[in-house]
């Protein structure tokens, strides 16, 4: 059970990114967080595990208040919060299994992880999660050899390897084709039901959200403007969230494609000396 109380975030020299956001997420509930780009969706889920520091407010995960924790205690709590990313955020040059095991890093010492001496129970669990997402036979492949959908499955397995009490999911389908998107959303939903996990999913695709989540929260300019069941999401609500548009057609999802690393000209020069 997660509870956000009057959460606000103010970036330097800009408007409030989050304005007094409060809601509870009971166990097993999957929440779809929708809203236009820049509404604060990404900020909101990153404030929960404090990848971004919130300015005001409180966050309770079960009985632990997260915003006041010291660095070492925060690390212990972060282990309980699994996160899944839009561009998968895998380490491409490591194997699938290593990527899954990187989810357990909070539970092992540096030297154990350095020599890849993970405790046997963790290894068996990691294999279990890989089997659950259907990638067991790919365990020893390098992550960059997988397709987009497969990479996202590895991302899910990594989050599960943390033994989480909460899942934060940031645009899980924005880089995937429609069919794979549905498969991934179905998998996330099933896993949350199996394990009675609460989850918050940032999502652009309203139709996809309506199909797979239990509850939808609409965010606009950092404020909650809608909180209800997917079926209550009609054209007038969408207009409040996104502004005026012909809602009978499927909303196009705009992708925030991350910029590929540009070969550094300066380095190139240095190498020719």
């Amino acid at each position: 059970m997660l509870s956000l109380q009057q959460l606000s975030k103010q970036y330097k020299n800009s408007e409030l990114a989050l304005d007094n956001v409060s809601f509870d997420v009971p166990s097993g509930q999957v929440i779809g967080l929708i809203g236009p780009s820049g509404a604060g969706k990404s900020t909101l889920i990153r404030c929960i595990n404090r990848l971004i520091e919130p300015t005001h407010g409180a966050i309770y995960l079960d009985d632990v208040e997260l915003t006041q924790l010291s660095t070492s205690k925060l690390r212990k709590q972060r282990r309980r919060i699994g996160m899944i990313f839009q561009e998968y955020a895998l380490v491409e040059r490591l194997s699938v299994m290593e990527n899954v095991l990187s989810g357990t890093l909070g539970y092992v010492s540096f030297w154990q992880s350095f020599f890849r001496k993970f405790p046997e129970p963790l290894l068996q669990k990691a294999f279990g999660y890989l089997e659950r997402v259907g990638l067991l036979e790919h365990a020893n492949k390098r992550a960059d050899q997988l397709s987009g959908g497969q990479k996202q499955r590895v991302g899910i397995a990594r989050a599960l390897a943390q033994e989480p009490s909460l899942l934060l999911i940031d645009e899980p389908t924005a880089s995937l084709d429609p069919k794979t998107s549905r498969q991934i959303m179905r998998l996330i939903k099933e896993i949350c039901k199996e394990r009675n996990l609460p989850a918050i999913i940032n999502i652009h695709d309203v139709v996809l959200a309506q199909t797979y989540v239990d509850r939808i929260i609409g965010l606009k300019a950092g404020k909650i403007v809608f909180d209800g069941s997917p079926s209550a999401l009609n054209a007038s609500v969408l207009t409040t969230i996104y502004g005026k548009e012909e809602w009978n057609t499927t909303p196009a999802c705009e992708e925030e494609v991350s910029i590929a690393p540009v070969p550094n000209f300066q380095t190139k020069l240095e190498l020719a000396i």
Binding site: L123, Q124, F127, Y129, E131, R195
Partner: peptide, 15 residues
């Protein structure tokens, strides 16, 4: 959790 217990013990070596 049923999936996990049924899977046989596997050995992982990174290299």
């Amino acid at each position: 959790m049923a999936h996990l217990e049924t899977s046989a013990k596997k050995v992982w070596q990174q290299r």
